[in-house]
Amino acid sequence: MSSSLEQMYQQVILDHAKHPHGRGLAEPVEGHLGGESHQVNPTCGDEVTLRVDVAPGPGRDTVVSGVSWEGEGCSISQASVSVMTELVTGRNLADVRRLDEAFHALMGSRGKGLDDEASLDALGDGEAFTGVSQYPARIKCALLGWAALKDSLARSGALADSTGGTDD
C-alpha cells in the first residue's frame, strides 16, 4: 500500500465507516424545525437521505439538535456523514456554517490540509479527510453529507429564521 492510500483511508475513517453515527432516520420533534434532503452522487450512485432537527432559540441559540440519516455509499462518503453528524449536533447555526466552510476548505487543499489551527481543531475527526483531498474523484464523496445538511437546513426554514427563532 502506498502512503497516500493510507493517508486517505485513515483508521478514523474506516472506523466511522464501519460504525457510523446518526444512522437511522429519526422522527421529527414537536415544536422544532425539521428538514430532509436526499442527495445522490450520480457518477457512483452514492446516496444519502438526511434529516436535520433544529431547536429554535433566540439568535445564536438556534441549534442543530439532531442529525439522522440513511445512506449507501463508499467508506469515504459514509464516514464523512458520520463525522459531520458528530461535529454539528448541538452546535448553533453560525458554528455549523463555519464548520461547513472549514471542511470545504480542507477538501480544496489538495492534500495540504489547513494552515488555520483553529479551524482544524474545530473539525476534530474531520481532519482525517485531508488525505481524501488529494484524490479529486473522491472529494465529492466526502462532501455528499455536507450538501445534504446544507439543503435540509434550508428546507427546515431555520436559515431564513436564524435570527428570529420563532416556531411557526
Binding site: S2, T43, I76
Partner: peptide, 26 residues
Amino acid sequence: GVHAHDVSQVLDDSGIAVRTGHHCAQ
C-alpha cells in the same frame, strides 16, 4: 463488505485502472 469505489481506489494504488459506478446502466 467493500464499496465499489473503495475497491477501485485500492486497485488504483497498484496502478490498475478499472471503472466504478453504474456504468451508465442504472
